[in-house]
Nucleic acid binder design. Structure first.
Lengths: 91, 91
DNA sequence: TCAAATTACGGTCGACGTAAGGATC
DNA sequence: GATCCTTACGTCGACCGTAATTTGA
């Protein structure tokens, strides 16, 4: 699993459509479709149901989504924690 | 930033020594040292102070560490959330 | 001088993009 | 037949490991 895969997954979940998610992520559909497949393979279960006009979350995907968002939020906080100046006890 | 880099960083912080962390991670020192450097470059600040016998966390590193651990914990929960069977309202 | 970290270098594995191929309505 | 997802294929960049170099007590 990679942070990219997690970000890709969230985008697909939010767009409900791999093609639109690819546009938003500035990559093309095939790599995005492949990364989703690899994520599902690694997790051992499908996360979306494929339909003719898009994809919809399966229960496992819905459960995964919550934690996926937490991961991305924590990464963002980690970045900002480094930039942030440590509190000065004298002020 | 990648999950590998985060895992590498935590290992180095816990071992206080890049060589030992490399043993624990089953990789060699050079790639580990390089990944740490890249992480620091991307974050725009050093996370460790280099000493002749190892490394010690700088304040920014200490702040980063907490969020790094949260990220890894959340990834683990994400994995398990997929494996977990959803609650059945009938039981 | 010794232990640890870093840089150099070559090889391999992974990810992307374009193009072609299904599948479903 | 139109739209979306997927497979095929070739290229390029990223990461690793071995070996050599540097740094600091």
């Amino acid at each position: 699993m990679s942070l990219d895969q997690i970000e890709y997954f969230v985008a697909i979940a939010e767009e409900g459509n791999i093609g639109r998610a690819a546009l938003r992520l500035h990559i093309s559909q095939p790599p995005l479709s492949r990364q989703l497949r690899r994520l599902e393979d690694e997790l051992g279960a499908p996360l979306f149901e494929r339909h003719p006009r898009g994809v919809t979350l399966l229960p496992a995907g819905t459960r995964f989504l919550q934690h996926a968002r937490s991961v991305l939020r924590e990464v963002d906080r980690a970045r900002r924690a480094v930039a942030e100046r440590p509190p000065d006890p004298h002020t």
